[in-house]
Amino acid sequence: METSLYLTLLISGFYTPSSCLHQYHLITNYMNWTDAQSYCRAHYTDLATVDDMEDQNRLITSVSSYNSWFWIGLKKGDSMKWNWSLADRRFYREGETEFRNWDTGTPQNGNCYLMSTAGLWNNTSCDDQHHFICYDGKQGTNITYVLIQENRTWIDAQSYCRQYHTDLVSVRNQTENTEIEKKISLRGLPVWIGLFLDSWRWSDQSDSSFRNWLSGRPSTDQGYNCTLVHSNHYFYYYSKWINHPCDYNCPFICYEALQLKRQVVRVKMTQRDQHLNLRDPAVQDAIVQEIRNKLKEQGLPADTKVTWKKQPDGKVFHKEEEGSPKKEEEEKKMKRMMTKREL
């Protein structure tokens, strides 16, 4: 596709934070949770930690040939902590996971959270049934917040959002809170959001908030303090998690931490065709291909994966205002760079 664009890469915008890829290893020896933890720490990194749905899918793939329950590294702790269902750390800027908009007298009893039509948050039992809001961050959709007018428990609402969209909605700031409030105000009913309270902790001390409980779990049975996952796709509990007594003997999944580097590049575009729809997935794919070609010129491997990083408002592109200090400074940088090399 002819994108009718001039692309200029701001090479000064590169940075390379390291990230961790979890490589999972199936261990078919039957052990209790504690012995499994010791084995994984001796031979790999630790019992399996799961950061997000990508991790979850890789973990299930690693055990798909073996029909059983498997220990992973999640164990019940002593203190409660607020978490967001959407566990991707790249989604949040500093301080955004701590935003709250409590109603008067909140929080009280109950581990899952609702937003009222006034935009205020209340907690209640996760087994209650309410409408809910999904966040859709998939490339190619213009819809960020999706109101689902079905009564479901919090866990079932989470599963629905992950299946059809991205996850239950996270609310990172007052602007997003107001936007979601407007979406539900005409309905007159509170909705589930992605905030939950639990005491479960990962064996490697990771702060991952990702959970994938089976509906009705975790149970409150005393002593059911460790977590199992099942690999058989013929059963309704396929890939879901249950809590179970830790002294039960099961095979288990270890993980090995592989260090990767993620490179983020700021792209500045001059658009020749003002009618070009930059939200069109085909247009975005064509731009990505053009960027990939330019990155290859800068020495990146040919098989480098290139994806869009959405802004906090859910958009990929922001129009830069004329005469802004930031724009003027970047133009100066680009003039200096262009004297050295034509991109």
Score class of each variant (00 low, 15 high):
residue 2 E to Q: 04
residue 4 S to V: 00
residue 5 L to W: 00
residue 5 L to C: 01
residue 12 S to G: 06
residue 12 S to E: 09
residue 23 Q to T: 08
residue 23 Q to E: 07
residue 31 M to Q: 15
residue 33 W to A: 13
residue 34 T to D: 15
residue 35 D to G: 03
residue 37 Q to L: 09
residue 39 Y to A: 06
residue 39 Y to H: 10
residue 40 C to P: 09
residue 42 A to F: 10
residue 48 A to M: 04
residue 50 V to Q: 02
residue 52 D to H: 15
residue 57 N to S: 03
residue 59 L to F: 00
residue 59 L to V: 02
residue 62 S to I: 02
residue 71 W to S: 04
residue 74 L to Q: 06
residue 74 L to P: 06
residue 77 G to V: 15
residue 82 W to P: 15
residue 85 S to H: 14
residue 92 Y to W: 13
residue 95 G to L: 11
residue 96 E to C: 12
residue 97 T to L: 08
residue 106 T to Q: 15
residue 107 P to W: 06
residue 110 G to C: 12
residue 126 C to P: 04
residue 129 Q to S: 03
residue 133 I to V: 15
residue 134 C to Q: 05
residue 139 Q to M: 09
residue 141 T to E: 12
residue 141 T to C: 12
residue 143 I to Q: 15
residue 157 A to P: 14
residue 165 H to C: 03
residue 166 T to R: 02
residue 168 L to Q: 12
residue 171 V to A: 07
residue 172 R to M: 13
residue 179 E to V: 09
residue 179 E to I: 07
residue 183 K to H: 13
residue 186 L to F: 15
residue 188 G to E: 06
residue 191 V to T: 12
residue 199 S to T: 11
residue 203 S to H: 04
residue 206 S to K: 03
residue 207 D to P: 03
residue 209 S to K: 03
residue 215 S to F: 09
residue 216 G to V: 09
residue 224 Y to E: 07
residue 226 C to S: 14
residue 227 T to R: 11
residue 227 T to Q: 11
residue 232 N to I: 08
residue 234 Y to N: 10
residue 236 Y to V: 12
residue 238 Y to R: 05
residue 246 C to N: 03
residue 248 Y to R: 05
residue 253 I to A: 03
residue 254 C to I: 13
residue 257 A to D: 01
residue 259 Q to P: 01
residue 262 R to D: 07
residue 264 V to Y: 10
residue 265 V to D: 01
residue 268 K to M: 01
residue 269 M to D: 00
residue 272 R to W: 06
residue 274 Q to M: 10
residue 276 L to Y: 03
residue 292 R to F: 05
residue 295 L to V: 11
residue 304 T to E: 11
residue 304 T to G: 07
residue 304 T to R: 02
residue 305 K to I: 14
residue 308 W to E: 10
residue 321 E to V: 03
residue 323 G to H: 09
residue 324 S to N: 04
residue 326 K to R: 06
residue 333 K to M: 06
residue 341 R to E: 11
residue 342 E to P: 00
